[in-house]
Design a protein around this nucleic acid. Sequence first.
DNA 1: ATGAAAGCGCTAACAG
DNA 2: CTGTTAGCGCTTTCAT
Lengths: 332, 332
Amino acid sequence: MRQPTLEEVAAAAGVSKMTASRALRGAADVSAESVAKVRAAAERLGYVGNRLALSLSARRTNLVSVVVPSMSNIVFPEVVSGITLGLEGSGLQAVFGISDYDPDKEREVIRNMLSWRPAALIITGLDQPEETLALLRHIDIPVIQLMDLDGEPLDFNIGLSHHAAGAAMGRALIAAGRRRFGYIGSMLGRDLRAAKRREGFAEALRDKGLEWITSSIAPDASSALLGKQLTGALLAGGRDIDCLYYSNDDMAAGGLFACMELGISVPSDILIAGFNGLDLADALPVQIATSRSPRRQMGEAAAHLVRRVLKDGREGVERVIAFTPDIVLGNG
Amino acid sequence: MRQPTLEEVAAAAGVSKMTASRALRGAADVSAESVAKVRAAAERLGYVGNRLALSLSARRTNLVSVVVPSMSNIVFPEVVSGITLGLEGSGLQAVFGISDYDPDKEREVIRNMLSWRPAALIITGLDQPEETLALLRHIDIPVIQLMDLDGEPLDFNIGLSHHAAGAAMGRALIAAGRRRFGYIGSMLGRDLRAAKRREGFAEALRDKGLEWITSSIAPDASSALLGKQLTGALLAGGRDIDCLYYSNDDMAAGGLFACMELGISVPSDILIAGFNGLDLADALPVQIATSRSPRRQMGEAAAHLVRRVLKDGREGVERVIAFTPDIVLGNG
DNA sequence: ATGAAAGCGCTAACAG
DNA sequence: CTGTTAGCGCTTTCAT
């Protein structure tokens, strides 16, 4: 049951391929009669246009390729939702690839996406290896590096400074009276943005003559369970801590749960701070400190940028859009 | 800076287009010398094959289209991860679309995906309206309906019975001594699988002469915060309840948090039951009851089914793969 | 308002 | 082992 072609629809409607093509695309200069006949024929035959042929012929696609590190951490699906939402009604279609936080895989995924000749490319972060950048320099579509701002953008850049976000949180917690800081994180070798936050935070500590009292970093993917386990282990070590900074809110939520089980009062004994401002954080029985990153907005901003550049060209479009996360210290 | 074509690579290598094509695809019957020359030329020119042309010419794509209702509920990204993982190394590429739980939008998304002539299609659930099914009956690619089993599959079907899952949880909770049940959910008009669980649960209650004492259903998307709010409101109503069944674990986690804030002991005063077996549930300070749905496995199973059918045809391939969620009552 | 011709970049099917 | 020919299904361009 091969899909019918435009030619078959045209034949069924008794017009030429071109008239059928124009009719289905709603072009001007087609008689109402032709339009009606073609529409009816298409409907009857169950015609679905072939975008491969369309795109090859028109020498452009409606594809916006998006590469994210993971789908297991809810922040990336949220960014993805923002992009999809922001593209709605534009005729553009987002296509997603997952790099698993692996630079080599990322390059392969990007390469694979480029073979579909997308109209624009959105990738995560600014830390692609030179080999990947070389690949991207060869193409003439808009490339948007999303979510991070700490580095030299290739083309367009939308995001926030994770270094600054970490530093701001560090300063806020010091201002709130905390002095004895521990860090709990995961996968910092691969989640470079989390590493930047940790470094920014550490810098804020150094500025006040402080430093991490203890630090626990696992190689696994972040999760509430991991945060809980690491926190339990760290606290069993008996370090004198009054604040724990986590690589993100998932980990921090787990940390909170560990404290609740151990009877440690949050935030009076230990203040717990994460990053992201997840919906989950708002529901927790005890509020944790966090930085609200505007994930959906960053996604939408990227989508809007793509629409604008594809429609009106790059002239006058700012290369960098900077977001600043809000710090929420919570009821602690 | 137009992307170079195969013809240009061939010219640069001093061979014909066909030899270049074969060399790059690693076909047999090409001299080592030609392969080397072509590879070098491709490398030098930064050649990235054009899949539009490839697919149009070869009359097939390597695309597996996947349509899910949402990316905001972590279970769908997990399924998506499972599919991506299961497709790895096959040369097949998953492409995702989001329906927002809207049947009309779902049809449009499917239509849009079909215009790319995918090799297979994976959609969520069995409850597509007739108009969508009609669209799908016209095509000859494998279609997999994923996650649900309660209904008549179009082609292939992988999932679990949500009705049975709800009923099993109901029976388990009755067996655990609970008698006064409340329900808290969201968006049941659109999340049909949650509605089926609720119905199955209610049937288990009826079998024992019981029924919902109270029920609170919001139109919004599920979240921990919503679960917390609805639970708070419901408990403020002063109903005499000893068990709350939620539409999913996110909602249930919020319910747990509400109880913790209100000083209600879980599970001794109220047992909290959800659905999914999220990672989060394992980290909670008090374990909630849940049914572990094998989301990643369902995704992988779908991917493997696709690989098999595309490779060896449909003969001898079972049409239905049934999963059964494990019930975890927890430490209650 | 409509159609015919040419071609997008690639591969399948033959020939050599 | 290599090349030639003929499309894939559509749009673009140019006629009419």
